[in-house]
Structure formats: C-alpha cells, structure tokens
Lab assay of single mutants.
Amino acid sequence: MTEYKLVVVGAGGVGKSALTIQLIQNHFVDEYDPTIEDSYRKQVVIDGETCLLDILDTAGQEEYSAMRDQYMRTGEGFLCVFAINNTKSFEDIHHYREQIKRVKDSEDVPMVLVGNKCDLPSRTVDTKQAQDLARSYGIPFIETSAKTRQGVDDAFYTLVREIRKHKEKMSKDGKKKKKKSKTKCVIM
C-alpha cells in the first residue's frame, strides 16, 4: 500500500485542523484551538488504489514558523489553505509557496490551493482571484467548507493525484537520464 505524506499549511484560523478532522473523523470542530502540530493517518481508496494518507496539520501562528522547514522537508505534497473571508490569509499563500519551493529546492512541488469556509456569506476573496492565482502557479484550486464537508475529500484526493503525477514524471525523467548515460565512448 502506497503511503502519501501530505502537509496542510496556511495562516492561523483558516480551518486547516477543521478540514483535516472532517476528512479523518467526519465531524466539524467549530471551536478554535490553535494547533502546534498534529499528525493523522487514514486509509482510503483513490482511483481504485488503496493508500495510506499521513497528514500533518501544522501551526499557522507566526511564533511556530521555525518548525516549518522541518515538516516541509518531509512532506510530499501540500494543501495551501486560505479562508475566503480573510484576504490576508490569501496573500500569505505566496509566502508559504515560496518557502516550500526553497526548502524542497524545487520549482515543481505537488500543491493544491484550497479556499476554505465557502459556506460563509462574508467572502472577501473572489473565486476568480483564487483561480487566477492557482493557474499562475500551475496547481489545482478547490473551494471547501469544513463545516458542510463540501470539497473536503476532493481537496485531499486531488493532492494525492498531483503527487502521483509528480512521481510518474520524475521516474520518466530518471529513465531518460539513465538511457543517456548508457551511451559509451570508444577510443581507438
């Protein structure tokens, strides 16, 4: 069974824990209790493949930012979460993405942009803004509501699919490099 290491990042209060708990335990946590770091595991079937999701729910508070490099190193894919009623959390996505790329030393890291709290009427981040940002990053965008469960499975499952595509691409690139290195030079 394939294991996928997913990391949920975003500013404090955007609903990272609520999304994760909704996926794992099928219930909505409405009281806000700032996370330092929590880890969850769940076995699911995605596109006919049974897999184990190892999900790291991270601290959004700035005082825990020193811990970010460590979990970013171990993560295979990242859910970059903002709240649709919090423009600052949307603007912060850029910083999370840049930090992930720096730590992973790669421009090509599996990510999904997630606009959470889409059940709320007080939207300050337009869907088109988020779609445009995701398009500019070359990553999928999904709106979710941890409260109603809308888009929750889709967000995590899409990230797994992005990781699969990335692994497939990397193995193809690896095979191309191996083929090239088999060419021999004969000096007579």
Score class of each variant (00 low, 15 high):
residue 27 H to C: 12
residue 12 G to M: 06
residue 59 A to T: 15
residue 32 Y to W: 13
residue 44 V to W: 12
residue 2 T to H: 12
residue 39 S to T: 07
residue 8 V to P: 00
residue 60 G to L: 06
residue 10 G to R: 00
residue 32 Y to T: 05
residue 28 F to E: 00
residue 45 V to Y: 05
residue 36 I to W: 02
residue 57 D to V: 03
residue 26 N to I: 06
residue 64 Y to W: 15
residue 4 Y to F: 14
residue 59 A to C: 15
residue 17 S to H: 01
residue 33 D to K: 07
residue 2 T to E: 14
residue 27 H to F: 12
residue 50 T to R: 06
residue 35 T to H: 01
residue 54 D to T: 04
residue 33 D to P: 04
residue 19 L to H: 07
residue 6 L to Q: 00
residue 48 G to H: 12
residue 56 L to S: 04
residue 3 E to Q: 08
residue 12 G to L: 05
residue 2 T to V: 11
residue 2 T to L: 07
residue 21 I to P: 01
residue 36 I to H: 03
residue 60 G to D: 13
residue 48 G to N: 12
residue 59 A to V: 14
residue 13 G to M: 13
residue 52 L to C: 10
residue 60 G to M: 08
residue 30 D to R: 10
residue 32 Y to K: 03
residue 58 T to W: 14
residue 56 L to K: 03
residue 18 A to H: 03
residue 18 A to D: 04
residue 59 A to D: 03
residue 62 E to V: 10
residue 48 G to L: 05
residue 53 L to I: 15
residue 44 V to A: 12
residue 4 Y to I: 12
residue 45 V to I: 11
residue 23 L to M: 11
residue 3 E to W: 05
residue 52 L to R: 12
residue 55 I to Q: 01
residue 35 T to F: 02
residue 55 I to K: 01
residue 7 V to D: 01
residue 26 N to L: 12
residue 59 A to I: 15
residue 3 E to K: 06
residue 59 A to Y: 15
residue 22 Q to M: 06
residue 44 V to M: 05
residue 45 V to K: 12
residue 11 A to H: 08
residue 57 D to W: 01
residue 36 I to E: 02
residue 6 L to I: 13
residue 54 D to F: 01
residue 63 E to M: 04
residue 18 A to N: 06
residue 29 V to T: 13
residue 37 E to C: 04
residue 34 P to V: 12
residue 58 T to E: 02
residue 46 I to R: 09
residue 63 E to W: 03
residue 47 D to F: 03
residue 13 G to T: 12
residue 63 E to S: 07
residue 56 L to I: 05
residue 64 Y to C: 15
residue 53 L to Y: 12
residue 25 Q to W: 05
residue 54 D to E: 13
residue 64 Y to S: 15
residue 45 V to C: 09
residue 16 K to W: 00
residue 19 L to Q: 14
residue 9 V to L: 15
residue 34 P to Y: 04
residue 63 E to F: 04
residue 11 A to E: 14
residue 50 T to C: 14
residue 46 I to A: 08
residue 43 Q to G: 04
residue 8 V to C: 09
residue 36 I to L: 15
residue 51 C to M: 08
residue 64 Y to F: 15
residue 12 G to P: 06
residue 26 N to R: 06
